[in-house]
Amino acid sequence: MDTAQSSVQPDLSGVPVTALESLRLRLAQLTHSLNSLQAQIQQASLPSWPALQGQLNVILTQLTSLSATVSGYAETLQRTVAYPLPNFPTNTEAGLLTTLLRKKNLPEVDDWIAEGKEIGEKTRAKQDGEFCSWAAKVVDECRQDHEWSGFLSRKDIENGLEDEGLNRNKTSPTAGPSWTNDETIIFLSRGEIPARFQKVDESIAS
């Protein structure tokens, strides 16, 4: 029996290896990301919002990539038929076989899809756009209620106070090389002027 089964050489040439491999890779990534997100959420202290947001973005990217791959290989996958080899232990692993060869969605998956469709129908892209422009308008209104520069509040300005700023009206002329920190400190400590500036400033320190 054993010898008869092992003598069957499966023909692997028709297996779409590239498609399956790239799907496997993306699924593995996604599983890993989902697991780690779940682990993070179940922690005693919730990770920071930016971290969660980042994690979600990664998962969304991976989902998009997965769905692009699936649709890319859709033709190959649709006409590929999986079947068990004669040496598959059907007696012991019958349950696994039905799972592996199942072509319909699981009932709960069907529910998810229906739910998603329902939500999708309720949300209209146009409404979303309207909401965004409304939000932008509100933000802009709030922004205009405040002073964003200077040292005075809106109230101060209404009371007639003038912002004198930092009292910097003119910028001084700039020319020539700058002193290094150490050169400046040496001047402060000992009055020594670096050789490269001495020609001009010989008379500073008496």
Binding site: S172, N181, V200
Partner: peptide
């Protein structure tokens, strides 16, 4: 006059 003519600040 400025010690450091480049106008640099410390």
């Amino acid at each position: 006059k400025l010690l450091d003519k480049s106008g640099q600040w410390s």
